[in-house]
């Protein structure tokens, strides 16, 4: 009897396609060998059949980008299979830090004065003013407990959903992602208290009452954090 060696790859069919559970204790080499073998055996060989989505669950194994690519290529060569997702329980410290930076709210208590630039990767909570000639930049949203009289750039890496909110909104310039707007050339007597700026459906920055954000950007409520 040809006793089957240990199973490193378990294949399950679901309504979303195939889910492949890959063992996370064996060596990467053994895993790839078995994957290759299994997929060859199980091949349905209907070259014209519909594409089947494959979801990989790799458990506590960390796959380098190169390894991920190798596995994707391997599966792609099996005719009508395509990798739709690779799900790992682990990420590198570097990725974790990057993720943390992008999603955390950085609070800073200072006055950003003329000629100064304050740049954060995630959301910015500034307790203080941005004076004319001063600049604040955030990868995410910008919340200012104070007066915004300088330049604010939210969604710096391309996030158009980002918003800018300030206790006093008298900016020289507002930028969200790659959209820009500047203050009118005349001086207005409006008080501009408790306002927010966002990109509307016409792809333009508009400034309105802070309270509107609840409806416009419900995702600002983050009672629980997700990956």
């Amino acid at each position: 009897m040809n006793r089957q060696k240990q199973q490193y790859v378990t294949i399950k069919g679901t309504k979303d396609g195939l889910t492949l559970h890959l063992d996370d204790t064996c060596s990467y080499h053994d895993l790839v060998m078995e994957l290759e073998e299994k997929l060859s055996v199980n091949q349905t060989n209907e070259p014209d059949g519909p594409l089947v989505a494959v979801h990989l669950k790799v458990g506590n194994r960390y796959l380098t980008p190169e390894q991920e690519e190798e596995i994707r290529t391997l599966i792609r060569t099996k005719k009508n299979l395509v990798v739709e997702s690779i799900d790992s329980n682990v990420i590198t410290k570097e990725e974790a830090l990057g993720w943390k930076r992008k999603t955390e709210i950085v609070s800073v208590s200072k006055i950003v004065r003329s000629g100064q630039i304050l740049h954060v990767k995630g959301d910015l909570l500034l307790i203080g003013d941005v004076n004319p000639g001063g600049t604040v930049i955030a990868g995410g949203n910008i919340f200012i407990l104070g007066a915004l009289r300088g330049i604010a750039h939210a969604g710096y890496y391309g996030n158009k959903e980002a918003v800018i909110a300030a206790s006093v909104m008298k900016p020289m310039q507002l930028r969200i992602s790659d959209i820009m707007s500047r203050s009118p050339d005349y001086k207005s007597e409006e008080r501009n208290e408790m306002e927010c700026a966002y990109i509307d459906d016409n792809n333009q920055i508009v400034v309105d009452r802070l309270q509107l954000l609840t409806h416009l950007r419900p995702h600002l409520t983050r009672l629980e954090r997700r990956l």
Binding site: R113, G115, G133, G134
Partner: peptide
Amino acid sequence: VRDADRIIGLLE
């Protein structure tokens, strides 16, 4: 005032 603000930023 703008220049004063700049200088204060440097002095700080």
